[in-house]
Write a protein that binds this DNA or RNA. Structure first.
Length: 810
RNA sequence: GCCCGGGUGGCGGAAUUGGUAGACGCGACGGACUUAAAAUCCGUUAUUCGAAAGGAUGUGGGGGUUCGAGUCCCCCCCCGGGCACCA
């Protein structure tokens, strides 16, 4: 019976690592640097299985890279601003800071209990004054360089909570907290100018290191580049004109009407000259009160109203009607379009409904290019297009028509992006205050740097019934203008927590520096992060914002790099009972129980073993017994090996074992490099099974193979199950396993001396036999003829793959 | 609708360049130990025909290339994720 006492062992080594500072990183060491980063967590109170997966993967990399001679930086911190703490404060009265810090403390203990190594001297927490001082500092740099600005914008507004909501908090058009309808409301908001970097953020994806293709694709989608033309439409009998954007300038002759969004800035002027005023006003009001959700999803039935005005097609001078319709979005392109119903399905639907002419200008003989039932959007040749007839759509005709628009000075080629500026203001308490002051004389003025941080005020009531909670503190709001000294008022919004997390990976490098946010030399030396690991749910927002931050800071000469994260690994989500684990669904699996019943090493191995790390997986704890058994068996095997009697000369079992060890080193190393931890763990299990077989058949061993086996096994296990391997190694060699280096493959002892030859007849396996490795075709044939009574004359062709297979084809 | 993934035993999942499909683990079944159970150990476990030897079938479906296809090509179905009235 095994005497493997995982509780004692795990506690012992966690204490040992803490005392020996194993997780600490000296940035100036001469070893090659490796910045290994796990996404810092929101302190929700308890680790969940997603965290366990994240930090286990991270720790495997940390320990493996340390063993391969790297100077590993692996820090940890807290994304500690955010709504739940504030909601708890509203409910229970506990201060968000106290609430958050208690939860951080608990989670930190659990992380340590998992056995993950971090440099806790570099711990950061977004809600601390030492941290948000620098978030404010960076914001001011952005503001001073026109990368942060304030403007009116429509935001999600919960009618019941009376607050703005982030997009993520709007679930199918309703508030995720109270389920009330969310409407759009115009508020004066702060933005960061991420759109300035649209093109760079897009092309950067091609130059970046190893990122999952799907994450790159998601970012490409999100940035949403489209190439086309923009041109001017004049309203007939007026001096009003507006721009339209199209990706299909080749269809310009098919424009039979134009559409302008009801929120368009020209709407008042249009109203003035229109004879259809009342109907238009009604329509605008109706559109405004629809929620975003209603507008997008409803019946898909498009609505609109005829303005009664005509616009002029610049190429044909034809006058066509101008409609107002909310299927045209005000914040994409120019907020107005040329409508070509023959070649755009949305315009087609609209034209059918309102009986507007549909005029085909692209046609293709080899395809069904009819437009009776739907728009024809494929490629073809231009027809009904004057001098452009016969040209190919889309590219050839488009560029010719753009040339013409340029000649006529009414348009040009144009590229637009879906990516919009980043709205960062929140009417919330528990976030980083925006460090700007409103002065009636000087306008918006940043707080003086020496006065940072602008501290979050203490308030009684966290509810934001009317504007931001910060506005309730008079002593906070009323201040002096940093420029002229006259009485002025502070901004009362706080920042989106994604601002905090857009630069935390740089703060780790100078976590306790009270002079600067980070040292440019440290950043240039240590970034980009060599390996970033986190959940796929952050594929767009956090990763895109951080990339933007780096580019902006580079342009402010604060860093000298282009990308924050060289390689990214996105782990899949762990579901339970068919859906994402969440407190509200009550389907949480608590990892802490497994620490007690199975141990951290078992849990780590199991979470790695259950599926490829990038795949989503359904939690099922049946399998954890398997990794527990593996560890007990490993413990017993190592002890049995240790006790084997000595012999002088290796026997054939030992030679085989030696080869097996080398094969395992090779396989696990390859799997580690490719993040195939599930198969790496399976290799460890196979090795363990080999060891069991060996000790069953051998009571003696040479000292050389005994030592080699124990040492190699321990080190191969170490990144995955660090506690047991540290203990086993120490028991045997009285030294610390972390002083070893990762084993190299001995290429002279990796080939098996024999193999199982497969004999196929007409491609089907018929026989198999053990033969010596390296034999040539003629020798193999001879063996087959003798052993299986085959003869060459019966077959037309013989196919031979060395050391694998022979196929007799008849 | 568009863009990514993916479909292999009862289950999670393995399979360099096309070369023994089902590694490893879970579960199940049988056995050993035990008064008994748990734990542990040994064996069996894709389906199907057969008493057995052995045969046939088999990686979502259909076609193709090849001596040989889970892997490559064409068509289709289903599942997961992302985006979506983006002009």
């Amino acid at each position: 019976m095994s005497d493997y006492k995982f509780l004692e062992i795990e506690k012992k080594w966690q204490k040992n690592w803490d005392e020996s500072n194993l997780g600490k990183c000296d940035l100036n060491s001469s070893k090659p640097k490796f910045y290994n980063l796990c996404m810092y967590p929101y302190p929700s109170g308890d680790l969940h299985m997603g965290h366990i997966r994240n930090y286990t993967i991270g720790d495997v990399i940390t320990r493996y890279k340390k063993l391969t001679g790297h100077n590993v930086l692996s820090p940890m911190g807290w994304d500690s601003f955010g709504l739940p703490a504030e909601n708890a404060a509203i409910k229970t009265g506990i201060h968000p800071k106290e609430f958050t810090e208690n939860r951080m403390k608990n989670m930190k203990n659990q992380i340590i209990r998992l056995g993950s190594l971090y440099d806790w001297d570099r711990e950061v927490a977004a809600h601390t004054e030492e941290y948000y001082k620098w978030t404010q500092y960076l914001f001011i740099q952005f503001f001073n360089n026109n990368l942060a600005y304030k403007k009116d914008a429509p935001v999600n507004w919960c009618t019941s909570c009376k607050t703005v909501l982030a997009n993520e908090q709007v679930i199918e058009g309703n508030c995720d907290r109270c389920d009330s309808v969310v409407t759009q409301k115009n508020l004066n908001q702060w933005f960061l100018k991420i759109s300035k970097y649209s093109e760079e953020l897009l092309v950067g994806l091609d130059e970046i290191g190893e990122w999952p293709e799907n994450v790159k694709a998601m970012q490409q989608n999100w940035i949403g580049k489209s190439v086309g033309a923009q041109f001017k439409l004049n309203i007939s009998n007026s001096d009003i004109s507006f721009e339209v954007f199209t990706t299909r300038p080749d269809t310009l002759f098919g424009m039979t009407f134009a559409v302008i969004s009801p929120e368009h800035s020209l709407m008042e002027e249009i109203l003035e000259i229109s004879e259809n005023k009342e109907e238009i006003k009604k329509y605008i009001t109706a559109a405004a009160t629809k929620s975003e959700f209603e507008r997008m999803s409803i019946t898909k039935e498009k609505t609109g109203v005829d303005s009664g005005l005509l616009v002029i097609n610049p190429l044909t001078n034809e006058k066509i009607p101008l409609w107002i319709a909310d299927y045209v979005l005000v914040n994409y392109g120019t907020g107005a379009i040329m409508a070509v119903p023959a070649h755009d399905q949305r315009d087609y639907d609209f034209a059918k409904k309102y009986n507007i002419e549909i005029r085909q200008v692209i046609s293709e003989d080899t395809l069904d290019s009819g437009i009776d039932k739907e728009a024809f959007i494929d490629r073809g040749k231009l027809v009904n297009s004057g001098e452009f007839n016969g040209l190919n759509s889309h590219d050839e005709a488009s560029s010719k028509i753009i040339e013409k628009l340029v000649d006529m000075k009414s348009g040009e080629g144009k590229t637009t992006y879906r990516l919009r500026d980043w709205l960062i203001s929140r009417q919330r308490y528990w976030g980083c205050p925006i460090p700007l002051v409103n002065c009636t004389d000087c306008g918006l003025v940043p707080e003086k740097l020496e006065n940072l941080p602008v501290k979050l005020p203490e308030i009684e009531d966290y509810l934001n019934t009317d504007g931001s909670p910060l506005s309730k503190s008079e002593s906070f709001v009323n201040t002096d203008c940093p420029m002229c000294g006259n009485p002025a008022k502070r901004e009362t919004d706080t920042m989106d927590t994604f601002v905090d997390s857009s630069w935390y990976f740089m703060r780790y490098l100078d976590a306790s520096n009270s002079e600067i946010p980070f040292d440019i030399e440290n950043v240039n030396n240590w970034l980009p992060v060599d390996q970033y690991i986190g959940g796929v749910e952050h594929a767009i927002l956090h990763l895109l914002y951080s990339r933007f931050f780096i580019k902006a800071l580079r342009d402010l000469n604060m860093v000298d790099i282009n990308e924050p994260f060289q390689n990214l690994f996105s782990q899949g989500m762990i579901n339970f009972e068919g859906s994402k684990m969440s407190k509200s669904k009550g389907n949480i699996v608590d990892p802490e129980g497994y620490f007690k019943t199975h141990g951290a090493d078992s849990l780590r191995l199991y979470i790695l073993f259950m599926a490829p790390p990038s795949d989503g997986v359904e939690w099922n704890d049946g399998g954890i017994e398997g990794t527990r058994r593996f560890l007990y068996k490993l413990w017993d095997n190592m002890n049995t090996f240790s006790d084997l009697a000595t012999r002088e000369i290796k026997n054939s079992d030992e030679e085989k074992l030696e080869i097996y060890l080398n094969q395992t080193i090779e396989s696990i190393t390859n799997h580690l490099e490719k993040f195939e931890f599930n198969t790496a763990v399976s290799d460890l299990m196979k090795l363990n099974n080999e060891l069991s077989t060996f000790v069953k058949n051998n009571k003696e061993i040479t000292d050389e193979i005994k030592k080699k086996t124990i040492q190699t096994t321990c080190i191969l296990v170490n990144p995955f199950a660090p506690h047991i391997s540290s203990e086993l190694f120490f028991k045997n060699f009285k030294s610390d396993i972390t002083e070893l280096t990762w084993p190299e493959v001995d290429s002279s002892k990796i080939e098996n001396p024999t193999y199982e030859l497969v004999i196929q007849i007409n491609g089907k396996k018929k026989h198999a036999t053990e033969v010596v490795s390296g034999l040539e075709q003629s020798e193999i044939e001879k063996i087959c003829f003798e052993k299986f009574q085959l003869s060459a004359s019966e077959y037309k062709k013989i196919i031979f793959v060395k050391d694998k297979i022979i196929n007799f084809v008849g």
